[in-house]
Simulated assay, not measured.
Amino acid sequence: MKISSIIYYLSLSISALAHGDHSQTVLKKKPANLRWQDWHMSEEHNLDEYDGKTFFLLHDLKGLGKWDHDDVLNLYGIKHEQIIGDGSGMGENSITITKETQRMVVDSIFQLFDLNNDGTISLEEWLSFHDAGKELPDFGFGQGHHLDFESEYEEHHWNKYHAQNDPDTKIKHKEDIEHELLHHKHEIEETHDRSSRLKKFANDYLSNIRLDNLTPKYRI
């Protein structure tokens, strides 16, 4: 087979493997009657009533009495590179969280709180904001799920309905089926992502092949 034919069929096969649906998911929208932090506490922590200090301590990941950049990203559920489904273990497609997006969220929050510009948000700075009845910005990433989508499904559904009485998940709820579909779809998308890396590697390799260095019988 001529080298040109090999390149042609290799490129076709890699392109087919890399093809996939990477459209963006529809995340949940905040109810109009709730502040973002109230929605977050209700949905993610099952707390409809809380005080400002409780909120702060729940999101102080390192227990240092202050929030840093990672704490803010964790609060909004954008610490990881992707939000799978709607972040709850259910949903459809995934969205990519870029470094630019993370930087925008962190910068916006620190402009609200870090009044002494020390690179952290103290309990006092948070309480001054919270006790004044102010609302955290809604950046459109849902209610801020902290865990990966498998752990979120276990936390909010499997532990509640299956862990004790139905560990083999013989009773299927809508949430179980949706989670299984999301799990398999994510596996396929990961395969496609790996294939795109394979495509780049192959293209980089093939771009270094100089046809003019081949003996005449292998040329086009």
Rank of each mutant, 00 (worst) to 15 (best):
P167R: 07
E189G: 00
D114T: 04
Q37E: 12
L12A: 08
H186G: 01
H184Y: 12
F139N: 04
W67D: 09
S11Y: 00
D118K: 09
I6D: 10
I95A: 01
I109R: 12
E125K: 00
H45N: 14
N93C: 03
K53C: 05
K62P: 00
N208V: 01
D176F: 14
I188M: 00
E49S: 15
L61G: 01
E135V: 00
G63C: 03
D212G: 01
D148K: 12
E189C: 04
E49C: 07
N203S: 11
H162M: 06
R210Q: 08
T191P: 00
L127T: 04
K170C: 15
R210G: 02
G144Y: 09
W158Y: 14
Y161G: 03
L115N: 15
S207G: 03
L147S: 10
S4H: 03
T98D: 13
I84V: 15
W36H: 12
D48R: 12
N74V: 08
K174V: 14
L182A: 01
K185N: 05
R103W: 05
I97H: 03
A132I: 07
G140C: 11
H80N: 13
D118T: 07
S151I: 10
K172A: 10
A18N: 01
N116K: 11
E43D: 09
L115R: 15
A132F: 05
H146W: 11
M104K: 14
D118G: 02
S108W: 10
D138Y: 06
D176Q: 03
S42L: 13
I78V: 10
D148S: 13
K199N: 13
S108G: 10
L214V: 10
G87V: 02
L75S: 05
S207K: 03
E154H: 04
H40F: 00
F141I: 09
E92D: 14
